[in-house]
Structures are given as structure tokens and as C-alpha cells.
Design a binder for these strands. Structure first.
Lengths: 341, 341
DNA sequence: ATTTTCATTGACAGCGCTGTCATCGCCATG
DNA sequence: CATGGCGATGACAGCGCTGTCAATGAAAAT
């Protein structure tokens, strides 16, 4: 059982070798392997055969350096802890891959400093563009992105003025829509339960939308509780337990920063024998599959995350082709009435 | 509201300009910005100041081409649909980032052809190494990886003979452990409910482990049901409903390919008024947070996914430093007794 | 038959950086 | 005071590829 030799003098096959084997010049081989235009069919075949025979793997770094665009796309996400950004990433990767592009990934953990450093690092790979779900970005970050001269697609929220292009939904409008739904159903007592909001500008925007919506009917949150740490099922479960230790349930509608929190809250109600929505009403956000598979489907707002990823990729690719897509693309959201509020 | 000028003649700052501004040669500037060794403190400061003043962003493609290693790591995952690989990716990214490396991501969708194409593509970026959670890999894939001369870390399962290095757990042993747990608790009727198994070699390995464990007490699955599509909460819910349309629940223990399926099944039981584990016992796999936050914690096996990602990264980095870590690293697993079986 | 056109091919330079080796002082040593 | 050693710096070449423009020859046009 010996490890394959680390191949210290690794003599990688180069384009020059392929060209020699095919009996043509380097540049002709290069063209044959790319455009295929302006190359005689016979030559084309020879070059392809030689490449195949030698197991040639092009060196795209050299290619990108020499002239072509890089075909790598920097992707900066604030988190991979719940499925939200995993969904976005999936949509992104699929579409980029189809176009022969690949994501270089960075996760900022909602830390503006880390985000800035990350962007600086990723930019040094000279990507063709950048897709970012911003944390509370620093001024330096914005300047760097603007000055990079690259297409920049900011995803998730379309309300803040984009540096270049935005793809997502109006987080604020989503918040308002949920508030309207809840007040429309007759609820008059409200609480908010979220993860650490300071770091997550979109959760904050939704909260503000909720507040604005409640204010429309002169209602307000009795309590806004934010817990440290990323949103998660256990956090929602613990959170609701803590909240209900202080507040009478009767007719209280609780809004969550994310479906996973709401699902955890639902579990608490099940375990504590509380009727939903009779004793407590629960409203989530994102329309995750898990919420819809609950015995009672969760009241939520579908956020079409894979769509955001896909559209972000398409928008970026369009800009790379020199087109001028809209500065701001609203992929919308949909209220899911569910049965928990 | 005008888009920032696409900067057609984008004159990016180069090392040469920094060197000129600092009044030193290119190579000295290069050294100052990297090693900092063998550079006079005064020169060092001048170069750094110049770089800062010019907003210099190094071009690592050129750097990698010229000599240094690439500091990009190809990462190939079969899916991002459930949190399993998102967790792994998170662990990977964190550790790689700390070491100044970045993942280039590819998702194979459990398709061997796509996986092979993906690897070919990613290899053309001349990464420093590759981390892969293999689908049912083709012979071509294995050859390509072996001949690449790069460190290759295969993650998730340590049973198949690794091309180079493996980090994960014994999927088969995990299956056996669960079987032993269930038979030990007295269950004698068993069923298996999974997602499309043909494409997922690890789920298959676990199933075989389960079978082997059951065989130890002369038991076997009454039914092995695999549903098309990736594992998900709704799929588990529908799946159990379908299964119980054919099988009497009384004392049946159902094993799932993943916790999300089991959680869906739990929801079905709640909705259908079935007692768990009285009428049906449920056993998942992976120890996802959601399963543990259920009113009754799910019987499962914790698979330490972020740990796998972190260890995979560390192993790769160690190989890049020229060390010789073990060929196979077992991060283990832990049975979670839970309360559903 | 002569000129024009076009498809095909190649020579050359250079992308931005780093490894290698040479050079230059300056200091400590005898 | 001569010598060796060493820290600091730079010249040069080249990583593997592609854009640009020129050269070639054969087909098309006159």
C-alpha cells in the first residue's frame, strides 16, 4: 500500500508539446482547442487527437494571464449554517458551471472585517466577477468592489442602493407583507424572535418591514428578542421557551427571523402542549421545506433562494458578455399562509 | 443613477508600479510583500507604503504561474441539497481560509460523468490539491486524480481504498452500529427508507452495514424502499406514509438514509396519530440539529461533518507542507440513542 | 493571365510575477 | 590593512498561454 509517488519533477504536458505532436505551431494548437474557428478541419482533428493522446490539461491560469478572461467568479456568503445560502450557492454553481465558470468561495461569518479581507484575497485571483451576499459591509469593502472594475452582483436584498447590480427581493416589503397577513387575520399581540440581528442586515430589514406593517394598524411588538448565534432549530426552541416564561401565550403571534427558528418554536409548543395557532401563532421566513413538511405547514414567506442564485449567475454572465441587464432584479417572494398563524 | 464606468481600459496596478513608487526593483518589492525576510526594514516599510498608497492588489495567477504553488483547492461535492455537505464545506472553507487558501467549488449532483468533467475543469486551474466526496466515480476519474500528482483527499467514507488519502468514518460500521442498537432494544421487524441509493455510495454502504448487523441476529428488512430524488423532509414524510399503507406499524423499526427523511417521517406520525416509538420506531443518520430539536430527539448517528471538513483541510495542508499524514483518518461517529427508537 | 480575396498558419511579444544567480557594500576577523 | 562572510539588492529568464499582425498559398474575380 504505497502512496502514489508525489511526482516531484511532475512534468506536466504543455500546449507546446501538443503542438509538436500534432505538427503545428503553438498558436494553431491553441486555436484548435478553443475556437475551432479559422482552423482547417484536418488540423483540428490532429490537434485534438494529440491532446487526447497526451492527456493534455490546459493551464487556465496561464490562459487568463495571457489575455482571456478568468472564468472564475468570486462568491462571498455570510454563512453556510442553515440551508438558505446553501440553496443560493447551489443555484449559482449550477448556472456558472453550465457556462464553464467556477465559483471561488469565501464565507464571511457576518463579520465585516473578515468580509473585507476575504474580498481582497479573492480579488487577487482576478476573477471575472463577484457575487456577494453582503454582511454589514465596510466602506472599504464598497470602495474596493466599486473600483475593481468587475461586475458585482449583490444578492438577497434589492432595497439598498447597489454598487453595481442587485438580485433578490425586498426584505422590507416581505416584512410588511407578513405583518399585513397577521394583522389581517386578527392578531393584535406580537413578539419577534430572531438570531443576532446586528450582523444580519437583511433580517434587520425584515424586522423593520414588520414594524412598519404593524404600525399601519397601530400595533407594535410587545417584545423583540434576539439571541446570540446563527439561526437554528434549537435556538428557536429555546427562544420561545424563554419568551413564554415572561409572556402569556393567549393570542400572541410570534414572528421569527427564519423558518428554522420557527420550526424549533413549533417543537417547543408540541412538547409543551400549546395549541398552534390557538395559544401561540408562529410565522417564519424563507419557506424552507422543513417548515412546509411539519404536521401543520408553517406560515412563512417563500424566498426562492435557488432562483436568486441562478438569476445572479445569469446576470453576471450577461454582463461578461457585454450586455447591460437591469441594475436591480426583483425575483419576488410569496406569502405562504400555512396553518400556524 | 449611472452604473460605474465599466473601466474599459482598466489599468490595474502592477508590482512594477509599486516597485517604481518605492524606488526599488520589482523583485525586492515582491520579496517585501511576501517573505519580508532578507529585506531591510526601511525598504520593507517603503514598499508597503507604496502598495498601500496605490491600492495594490497582487495578481496571484501570475504568481502561481511564475513559480509558487496555487493556493486554490478544488472541492467537489455531490450535492448541496441538505445540510450535510454544507456543513462539510463550512469546515473546509474555515480551515483553508485560515491558511490563505480558497476553495474552487464543483457540485456533481451524484453524476459520475459530471463529476469527471468537473474534475477535469477544476484541474485546469492548477489547484494545489483536491478534496472530493466522490459520487460513484468512473475509472477515468480515479486515473485522472491519481495522475494529477496533487494531494487528493477523499472525504466521508474511509472504507474504500483511497487514491491518496481518506478522511471520514466507516459508513459500513455506522450502519452496523445502528443495527446493533435496534436489535439490542428488542426490535425484530425492520424496514429501510432511503433516497435514490444507486447514486450515493455512502448511503449504500450504510445500508449494507445495517443488513450485516441485522443478519447477526438473523433478522432482515421486510422492505427496502428507495425513492427518487435527493433526501429531504417531505420525501421522508411521503415515504413513510406510502410504506405504512402496505405494512402494519406494530413494532416496526424504520431506518432512514438521512435524518431529514426521518424527521419527515416523524411529522407523518404526528399527523397520523401514530405513537413513536410505540407504533413505529424511527432511526435516522447524521445527527442533524433538526432531529435533536424534535419534541422527542431522534435516534441517529452523529457524523461530525464540520470536523470532517476541517480535518480534510488540515490533512491537505499538511501534505502541501511536505508532511506525510496517515493515508486514512477516521474521525469516528457516535450513536445518539434519542427517543424515537 | 493577373489581381484580389480569403482561409489558414505562424512569429513575436508580453501578461505579472518569482526562482536563480550575480553583485555590491559593509562589517567582523586575523 | 587585507580577507572572507553575509545581508541586501537587482538582472535575467521564463512560467504557459493568447492577442496582434504578418505571411502564405489557393481560390475567386477581372
Amino acid at each position: 500500500m504505497s502512496r502514489p509517488p508525489p511526482d516531484p519533477a511532475e512534468p506536466r504536458v504543455t500546449l507546446a508539446q501538443v503542438a509538436r505532436a500534432a505538427g503545428v505551431s503553438e498558436i494553431t494548437a491553441s486555436r484548435a482547442l478553443r475556437d475551432a474557428a479559422n482552423v482547417a478541419p484536418r488540423t483540428l482533428e490532429q490537434v485534438r487527437a494529440a491532446a487526447r493522446a497526451l492527456d493534455y490539461v490546459p493551464n487556465r491560469m496561464a490562459g487568463a494571464l495571457a489575455g482571456g478572461a478568468s472564468r472564475q467568479v468570486a462568491v462571498v456568503l455570510p454563512s453556510l449554517s442553515n440551508s438558505v445560502f446553501a440553496d443560493v450557492l447551489r443555484g449559482l454553481e449550477t448556472r456558472l458551471d453550465h457556462a464553464g465558470h467556477h465559483p471561488i468561495l469565501g464565507v464571511s461569518n457576518y463579520d465585516p472585517e473578515q468580509e473585507e479581507r476575504l474580498i481582497r484575497d479573492l480579488l487577487s485571483w482576478r476573477p471575472a466577477g463577484i457575487v456577494i451576499a453582503p454582511a454589514a459591509s465596510t466602506e472599504g469593502t464598497r470602495r474596493m468592489l466599486a473600483q475593481s472594475g468587475l461586475p458585482v452582483v449583490e444578492i438577497m436584498d434589492i432595497d439598498p442602493p447597489p454598487i453595481d447590480t442587485a438580485v433578490g427581493l425586498s426584505q422590507r416589503a416581505a416584512g410588511r407583507a407578513m405583518a399585513a397577513h397577521l394583522t389581517g387575520r386578527g392578531y393584535r399581540r406580537f413578539a419577534y424572535l430572531g438570531h443576532d440581528i446586528a450582523a444580519d442586515p437583511r433580517a434587520l430589514a425584515r424586522l423593520e418591514g414588520l414594524r412598519a406593517g404593524l404600525a399601519d394598524v397601530r400595533a407594535r411588538f410587545e417584545e423583540v428578542l434576539t439571541l446570540p448565534g446563527p439561526s437554528s432549530v434549537p435556538l428557536g426552541r429555546e427562544g420561545l421557551a424563554a419568551l413564554l416564561a415572561r409572556r402569556a401565550p393567549g393570542g400572541l403571534a410570534v414572528c421569527f427571523s427564519n423558518d428554522d427558528m420557527a420550526v424549533g418554536a413549533m417543537f417547543h409548543c408540541m412538547a409543551a402542549g400549546l395549541a398552534v395557532p390557538g395559544d401561540v401563532a408562529l410565522a417564519g421566513f424563507n419557506g424552507l421545506a422543513i417548515g412546509q413538511a411539519l404536521p401543520q405547514p408553517l406560515t412563512s414567506i417563500a424566498s426562492m433562494r435557488d432562483r436568486i442564485g441562478a438569476v445572479a449567475a445569469d446576470t453576471l454572465l450577461a454582463r461578461l458578455r457585454g450586455e447591460e441587464p437591469a441594475r436591480s432584479i426583483d425575483v419576488g417572494f410569496a406569502l405562504i399562509p400555512g396553518a400556524t398563524a
